[in-house]
Design a protein around this nucleic acid. Structure first.
Length: 423
RNA sequence: GGAGAGCUGGCAGAGUGGUCGAAUGCGACAGUCUUGAAAACUGUUAUACCGCAAGGUAUCAGGGGUUCGAAUCCCUUGCUCUCCGCCA
């Protein structure tokens, strides 16, 4: 969340930022609720001060009566304060982070500037199949039984694809560890308060988050949640920064209302595995760490020899906590363009600089050399997201004979196998 | 899953109804002494919010209750530890 004082002092900037980011939050309402809250708080504190003066030692009957009166007044105001406090929090959680000055302002979320293209869209001298067809003919994914057992948008990975997921995990984890990241396997569930602190909205109609009934737990949509929550309510010594983590987790998303022909197969599913990078840094270094996260993402996909491009989210497409987000979009020969022609770029990674937005929500500070404390900066980035990486490999590496060439860097994890072929 | 014991400041640990936001020790920081260091001595040392300030309010795991007054009593949730059972 943003600092309420910052919002008060920069009302116009904040409002314009909300407009640029297509956020509908009512900043004026937030400010007036905050003011109202403050005036009631002051009244209560004054009454408490008056009351406390007389309750240090055993009071006379007269004074007891007086204290009782004050307490009644306080009890009357207290519920009002509680309501206002939760209303203020509710509104504050909806205000997006400020935006990096270099981010393209657009109200159209399809206008993300392309920064770079690495490799060229794969060319075939035959008509390429999409990953669903490939998976069917090679017996790599069982959609029907996934649906039977868990419902639509669940699937079983089978045979070489199941092995490939673990090979990808090993490969990406190795890249991260070589770059000084600490590897983790995290819980797949987390408390609502952690999600909220990080800027996720587990409640509401259009939430992407699964909640566990009769508990305050949610299924995580990304290990960003568990790694961001990792240091909640801690003060970290500046000397140990930056902290760089690479976390393996399952990810669960409701994908409410997301069904379409553009999300065929395992492109958009309710569950997948992912390695997420997460970094805690000082404000001075967060921007360079952000670049580093992007570089690692590129290294991982260059290593797999998958063509991709880098996009820089425009304001309309930025998530709430982020001031800037870069995505890698890989070439997916089986993904249709909006006009129906096969072959399109599809999102495979995303890296965001959340500055102190999440740290404020979870109260994570760092201690400087002079002893002062400040909110830390947090960043996250996808090292590899399995379902989508598998799509890339299947579709880009297919042969005329319907086989799939296994990327060289993965072969050592698969007993040296070079391709997946029909049985 | 059963039975029991706990949860207090950076740590250890006192405090069982009234100047307690909390003794004491350790640690940390600053100073004195010293060529320097150690030792010794002196002082400082939780957080958030309100306020220009003086100062005020809240916080002793979380929530609720009893009371004029709660770290202290009651209820409840969470967590930790010990023992038993079960289990990958």
């Amino acid at each position: 969340m943003l600092d309420i004082k910052f919002i008060i002092e920069n009302q116009e900037l904040v409002k314009q930022n909300c407009i640029n980011r297509l956020s509908k939050v009512d900043v004026d309402l937030l400010l007036s609720k905050y003011e109202e809250r403050l005036s009631i708080l002051k009244k209560i504190e004054l009454l408490q001060a008056e009351r406390n003066k007389n309750s240090k030692t055993k009071p006379t009957l007269e004074i007891i009566e007086e204290i009782k009166k004050k307490n009644l007044e306080i009890e009357e105001l207290q519920p009002k304060l509680n309501i206002l406090e939760s209303e203020v929090r509710e509104l504050l959680l909806q205000v997006p982070n400020m935006t990096h000055k270099d981010v393209f302002v657009s109200f159209n979320e399809d206008e993300n500037p392309v920064l770079e293209i690495c490799g060229e869209p794969t060319k075939f001298d035959f008509i390429p199949k999409d990953h669903v067809e490939l998976a069917e003919s090679l017996d790599l994914i069982d959609f029907d039984r996934g649906t039977k057992v868990a419902g639509a948008k669940f699937y079983y990975l089978k045979n070489e694809l199941a092995l490939l997921e673990f090979a990808l995990t090993q490969y990406a984890l190795e890249v991260c560890v070589n770059r000084g990241f600490t590897p983790f396997v995290t819980p797949d569930l987390a408390k609502k308060e952690i999600l909220e602190g990080l800027g996720f909205q587990p409640r509401g109609e259009s939430t992407q988050i699964y909640s566990i009934e009769n508990s305050d737990l949610c299924l995580v949509g990304t290990a960003e949640i568990t790694m961001g929550g990792y240091h909640a309510n801690e003060v970290l010594d500046e000397k140990i920064l930056p902290l760089k983590y690479a976390a393996v987790s399952h990810c669960f998303r409701t994908e409410a209302g997301a069904a379409s022909k553009f999300s065929k197969g395992i492109f958009r599913v309710h569950q997948f595995s992912k390695i997420e990078m997460f970094a805690y840094t000082t404000p001075e270094t967060s921007e360079s760490i952000h670049k580093e996260l992007l570089e690692i993402e590129k290294e991982i996909f260059k290593g797999l020899k998958i063509p991709f491009r880098v996009i820089d989210h425009c304001t309309a497409d930025l998530g709430g906590p982020s001031i800037r987000t870069y995505d890698l979009e890989a070439w997916m020969p089986g993904k249709p363009k909006s006009d129906g022609v096969m072959g399109n770029w599809g999102e495979i990674t995303s890296t965001s600089n959340c500055t102190d937005f999440q740290a404020r929500g979870l109260n994570i500070k760092y201690k400087k050399e002079d002893g002062s404390k400040e909110f830390i900066h947090t960043l996250n980035g996808t090292a590899i997201s399995m379902a989508r990486a598998l799509i890339c490999i299947m579709e880009n590496n297919q042969t005329k004979d319907g086989e799939i060439i296994i990327p060289e860097v993965l072969r050592k994890y698969l007993n040296g196998r070079e391709k997946i072929s029909r049985k």
